[in-house]
Design a protein around this nucleic acid. Structure first.
Length: 193
DNA sequence: CAAGAGATCATCT
DNA sequence: GATGATCTCTTGA
């Protein structure tokens, strides 16, 4: 069952937790790429110093201020794209970063995209995931309740997970230690280093 | 195995 | 002109 807009309109932390175990699907060219989400991070809004929107509304963060259920894709370090899902109400800038998935379908295509044969190196990090799933800034602002890029609940209970501080946000003062990163317990497909 | 550097660019000051 | 929600490779022990 495809996740619809109201799912993304919930509180960002709830969305981040509930996304664990859901399936990310990208219908791209000939291939359908599918992965099971095993790691997410919540970026809570304008007061969260680790959230890009803490610096205000700019061209880059504009999508986060829009309606829930859209993709916020941005480019960083000159190399990598990051995939986020916009949450909460319109004009409230919050999002969930998808950090890692377990490859399920389209694995051959992912290996080609990544130029890497090892299953647990295909999408075990936000930059790798976008490479494997052929996600770039052309998808920024895309509706994830549509037909190209979307998420599915395929049943089953929510996996057991741990909450830890977010990665790479040491600059965020008192926000850097908040347990807003959620990882599926015992998954081999979470981000590595 | 851990640590460090380099790659490379959109965005903001 | 600086910097970052990263990854890979190289180095050294």
């Amino acid at each position: 069952m495809k996740l619809s807009r109201p799912f993304y309109e919930q509180s960002t932390i709830d969305v981040a937790k509930q996304l664990l175990g859901k399936f990310l699907i990208h219908r791209h060219a000939d291939a359908t790429l599918v992965g099971r989400i095993v790691e997410t991070e919540a970026y809570l809004g304008p007061h969260d110093l680790a959230c890009h929107a803490a610096k205000g509304r700019t061209k880059r963060t504009d999508v986060m201020f829009g309606a829930a259920g859209h993709a916020y894709v941005y480019f960083i370090y000159g190399f990598y794209n990051m995939l986020n899902l916009v949450t909460e109400a319109k004009d409230y800038p919050a999002a969930v970063l998808i950090r890692a998935v377990e490859p399920v379908r389209g694995i051959e295509q992912m290996k080609q995209n990544r130029k890497n044969e090892l299953l647990h190196h295909l999408a075990s990090g936000p930059g790798k995931l976008c490479q494997a799933f052929a996600i770039d800034r052309s998808l920024n602002g895309a509706d994830v309740c549509g037909k190209v890029l979307y998420l599915e609940d395929q049943g089953g209970s929510m996996p057991k997970f741990d909450a830890t501080p977010r990665i790479g946000v040491d600059y965020a003062a008192q926000w850097k230690d908040k347990p807003l990163r959620f990882v599926v317990r015992d998954s081999k497909f979470v981000s590595q280093r």
